[in-house]
Structures are given as structure tokens and as C-alpha cells.
């Protein structure tokens, strides 16, 4: 059991970015969240957390707890960009990066000859030096323990859980620290007499299986510190689609073709951004009475260019009965493959 799994969790990610980019916000309670009456907190800076503000809390409630807080709507494009910069640091060490969110990812560094603890320290240092942000990092031999470790001494934490100390670390913890155990499962576990992780580890496996099925077995394994989930980098997108609802319903083929041209262009752009091609084009229409219809066509080759997408979409449009007006039209490219190889053509 090698310590190859690293979990990186950015500290108060959105709020920290805002504080970094605007010195006036430093040391102040900054709360990022949706505006409006029904908005919720997406990130609270550590200063704001002292007032009891936490993620997913309604903004209205946050304002009561922390009236002097600085409330921002947040700039998701910026956060996404920073997230990309962080991932770029990860990729210097391994291809096996599984992002869980913009601010969180698992890494498997088994392919890197460097010591994983050293890699983890370097990552932490580079995030600080290059991006002026802090991360909490957990290192262990599986995903569950790595994530548990990164959560240990936030912010700016660094924790290693080795196979020798795993049981010592997790046994005293409450069952809700097991991966996938929410309030409901925790309650049921407690009703069955499982309070601490050690209770499950030493408990009756068949009872857990009887009670929770496959998940019961998984809980039993997790409680022993065993987790066989792999770090899996996100695969290719399953499909790329774009649709548009018209301002006025229409059954004019000329108008529809115009929309198809624009949509084809957007789908082609997305395909080229993701460096993929596809085999199947699906045309979706929604009639004025909200009835939906989709038609698709799969071809032998792979396409990604606007002309090719449009050409097929237009043929599919011919098959659509326009006895009613249409309110929405969309194009999806699916059956996606990487654009790394090119099947050459004869003609």
C-alpha cells in the first residue's frame, strides 16, 4: 500500500481569490453567494466562518449572523480560470488527476518516481508561490483516507495517513466521517449500535450487508481503511449539444436553417475546443405545444466541422413534419472520439 493518492482541497477558494485580487478585502469576512432572496452561500472566507456563516446557508441567514460581511456575487469565469491554473500544476506531476469540483481534486502519482510526500509538498508550495492561494493537502494510499487527511487541519493543512496509523486515525471518528454516509445513514447506523468507525470495523459484516446491501459491504471495508476506487481522469464528453428557444415560434424552413447554421457553428467550436469529433448528429425540435421530437443519424466517419454538422442537421430537418410551429431547435454531436487520429479518405 503505497502513499500514492493525494487529495488537494483549496481553502475557501472563491473568497480567497477575491481577497487575493482586492487587498481591501484582506482580513475581512467575505461571503460569495447568489444575490436575491433565495441565494445561498457558496463560499465564506475564514473570517466570515467565525460568525457561523458556512456554505449552503441562505444568504438571508448569513446577513443576520454577519451584517458587516462583504457580500459578492462571484466571478465564476475567473474561478474557473484559476482552477485551470491549479490543474496545470497538478499535470506537471501526473496525468491521473480527477477533479471533483473547481477547488478540489484527487491525484494518483504512482507513475512519478518522486516521493509522493515530496510531490504533495511541492504542489502546496507552488500553489502558494505561483497563485498566492493556500490549499489543504492529504496524502494516503486511497481516496477515502486522502480526502479525510486533507480535511484534518484546514486551512493550509498537510496530513499524511500511512497504512500503519490508518486505523488509529479513523477508528475514534464518528460514523458520519465515512465516505458516503449522510445524516440518514448515520442515524440508521447509530440505531444499529454503530457509533464510531471502530464499531463498524469490528462489527458484524453480514448485518451491515443485510441492512445496507452492497453499500454495507463498502462501509465495512472503508471502516478498515480500505477503498478500492481508482483515480479516474474525466473521460471524453458523451455529447456536445446546443439548443435555442426562439423569440417567436416559427415553421419557416429558411429561418430554421439559419438557426441550424448558428448552432452548427457553436457545436463545431465546442468540439474543436475539446479536441473531439463525433459520429452521430441529433436534431431536436420542440413544437409550440411542447411536444418534442428528435431525429438522429450516425455516419461511418467522424465529423467536427461546421459544414459537416450543418449538412447532416439540414437533412434531418427535412424529415421533420412542420405541421405545427416550432419553439426550440437543437443540435447534438455524440458518439464522441478524440481527434488525435485521422482516418484518411479515398475520394
Amino acid at each position: 500500500m503505497e502513499l500514492n493518492i493525494i487529495h488537494v482541497d483549496m481553502d475557501a477558494f472563491y473568497a480567497s481569490i477575491e481577497q487575493r485580487d482586492n487587498p481591501k478585502l484582506k482580513g475581512k469576512p467575505v461571503i460569495i453567494g447568489g444575490r436575491g432572496k433565495r441565494g445561498v452561500v457558496s463560499t465564506a472566507s475564514y473570517e466570515a466562518r467565525e460568525y457561523g456563516v458556512y456554505s449552503a446557508m441562505p444568504i438571508v441567514k448569513a446577513r443576520q449572523l454577519c451584517p458587516q460581511g462583504i457580500y459578492l456575487q462571484g466571478d465564476h469565469l475567473k474561478y474557473r480560470e484559476v482552477s485551470g491554473q491549479i490543474r496545470e500544476i497538478f499535470y506537471r506531476y501526473t496525468e491521473l488527476v480527477e477533479p471533483l469540483a473547481l477547488d478540489e481534486a484527487y491525484l494518483d502519482v504512482k507513475g512519478n518516481h518522486k516521493n509522493s510526500i515530496r510531490i504533495a509538498k511541492e504542489i502546496k508550495r507552488k500553489i502558494k508561490k505561483e497563485l498566492k492561494l493556500t490549499a489543504s493537502i492529504g496524502v494516503s494510499y486511497n481516496k477515502y483516507l486522502a480526502k479525510l487527511a486533507s480535511d484534518f487541519n484546514k486551512p493550509s493543512g498537510f496530513k499524511i495517513i500511512s497504512p500503519f496509523e490508518a486505523k488509529e486515525v479513523i477508528f475514534p471518528l464518528d460514523v458520519n466521517n465515512l465516505w458516503g454516509v449522510g445524516p440518514k445513514t448515520a442515524q440508521r447506523l447509530k440505531e444499529l449500535g454503530f457509533y464510531k468507525i471502530s464499531d463498524i470495523a469490528k462489527g458484524d459484516r453480514s448485518l451491515l450487508i443485510r441492512e445496507f446491501g452492497k453499500r454495507g459491504y463498502q462501509l465495512y471495508k472503508l471502516a478498515q481503511g480500505e477503498d478500492y476506487r481508482k483515480v479516474t481522469p474525466p473521460g471524453l464528453p458523451k455529447s456536445l449539444g446546443k439548443e435555442t428557444t426562439f423569440r417567436y415560434d416559427t415553421r419557416d424552413k429558411g429561418v430554421l436553417r439559419g438557426y441550424l447554421k448558428d448552432l452548427s457553428k457553436e457545436v463545431a467550436n465546442r468540439a474543436s475546443n475539446k479536441n473531439v469529433k463525433g459520429k452521430t448528429i441529433t436534431l431536436k425540435v420542440k413544437y409550440e405545444n411542447f411536444e418534442e421530437l428528435s431525429k438522429s443519424r450516425t455516419i461511418e466517419g467522424n465529423i467536427s466541422k461546421q459544414e459537416d454538422i450543418y449538412r447532416l442537421a439540414e437533412i434531418l430537418l427535412e424529415e421533420v413534419v412542420l405541421d405545427k410551429k416550432i419553439r426550440l431547435i437543437g443540435i447534438t454531436l455524440s458518439n464522441i472520439t478524440e481527434d488525435g487520429v485521422e482516418q484518411l479518405k479515398l475520394l
Binding site: 481527434d339 488525435g340 487520429v341 485521422e342 482516418q343 484518411l344 479518405k345 479515398l346
Partner: peptide, 8 residues
């Protein structure tokens, strides 16, 4: 006749 695949 079969066309080859080019890998980029």
C-alpha cells in the same frame, strides 16, 4: 482499397 489512419 483501404485508407490508412494518420495519428497526429
Amino acid at each position: 482499397i483501404i485508407m490508412p489512419v494518420r495519428s497526429n
